[in-house]
Computed example of a mutant assay.
Amino acid sequence: MRVNSFFVSSALAVSIALVGVFSSGADAATEAQVAPALAGAQVRAQAPGVYRYRVGDFQVTALSDGTVPQDLHALLTNTTPAETDGLLKNAFLSNPAEVSINAFLIDTGSRLVLVDTGSGALFGPGKGGKLLGSLKAAGYAPEQINDILLTHIHTDHSGGLVSEGQLVFPKATVHVGKPDVDLFLDPANIHGVNGYDKRYFEEAVKTVGPYVKAGKVVPFNGVTELFPGVKAIPTPGHTPGHSFYRFESKGESIEFIGDIVHVASVQFPKPKITIVYDVAPKEAAAQREKQFASAASQRELVAGAHLPFPGLGHIRAEGEGGFTFVPVDYRDRDQP
């Protein structure tokens, strides 16, 4: 043991000496070789966006379809750039704002239900289109999905339904509010309605249309129990068929609230602020105030399509007519 200790001590001494030599004798060329490696951090892609949350016996998995920058000065209405910038600054943000595109997979034990499908390829390269990667990372394949619940027929919610004209979810039944089907898929509206841009209608035909032809779209009217523990709740305004979906299990619940809010930092404190995507802006603002107040008073767990990923949390009343979003605590443990 004494011999080993001697060699260890000697080796340490030599190492320390060598470090001293190299430290003091390092020339400019060596430093130039090392410096770039330390100074130039490489840009790396995010890992697939997956977050799991338990609601009773239901497993909820938030899936990211990516994020997109939004020029709020051009998009928000019933406000001013100055008001928008002030609200963004208060949230430590600036314009343009980065907005999440979220979808949610719910395993009820008897079926796999997907709420919204992201934008697919319709926003172009680098903007959305990450849902299938997130779905795969979560351990699921598109062929496993039994039902798709569209909160409404807009590109960033229905775009992921198809790829190059083919059904991405070949075994799924699509559920959506009938007023949206009537508006966006009526051939008479293909060129737009009352100034509402024609691309919304063209894209609806591309994304939802193939499922209609395949007999896989089931529209609903009014509050509807789609299957045990799952209820559709119409919340018109943003679109005429915009709907929430409420899932209940063992005394716990969650509501998927779609586009009741687009920009959390702006529309929670000022629900009156609308966006050009609204079919009926006044109705959308009134619906937002109503639903925020309801969720706050009932302490309802909500999941939003454009809330910062994973988009799960609660709404709290704050100030005069204002609200704030409180994200759920992060969980990462093996047991529910």
Rank of each mutant, 00 (worst) to 15 (best):
L167G: 02
Y140R: 02
P48A: 08
A138R: 02
P269E: 12
I254N: 00
L38I: 01
G321S: 13
F58D: 05
G133I: 09
F6S: 10
L12P: 02
E143G: 15
A17H: 09
F7H: 12
K171W: 04
V14Q: 02
P281L: 02
N189Q: 09
T30A: 14
G209R: 10
S294H: 12
V261Y: 00
N221R: 14
Q59L: 15
A137C: 04
V99G: 08
Q291K: 07
A97G: 12
D334N: 07
T79N: 01
T117N: 08
Q335T: 07
T235R: 14
F201D: 06
I148F: 05
T324E: 07
T151S: 07
R331Q: 13
E203T: 14
T173F: 15
E143T: 13
G311K: 03
T224N: 12
G304H: 11
N95P: 08
G258H: 07
A37M: 10
A280G: 08
A74L: 13
G160P: 06
D334K: 06
G322A: 09
S249F: 14
P327Q: 05
V279I: 02
D197G: 14
V19M: 10
Q33T: 03
R199C: 02
A26T: 05
A37G: 12
A172K: 15
G133A: 10
S24W: 14
V55I: 15
V50E: 06
Y245H: 04
A303K: 10
G133S: 15
A47L: 08
A35I: 14
P219Y: 06
G133P: 09
V113I: 09
A91M: 04
S94W: 13
T30D: 10
A286T: 11
E252R: 05
M1R: 08
P310M: 05
K178F: 00
S100I: 14
T79C: 11
V217K: 00
S163C: 03
L72F: 08
A280P: 08
G160F: 01
V3G: 01
P336C: 10
A74K: 08
D65T: 07
P210C: 02
L161H: 05
K270C: 00
E320I: 13
A74H: 13
V212E: 04
V168N: 03
I145W: 04
A232T: 13
A121S: 15
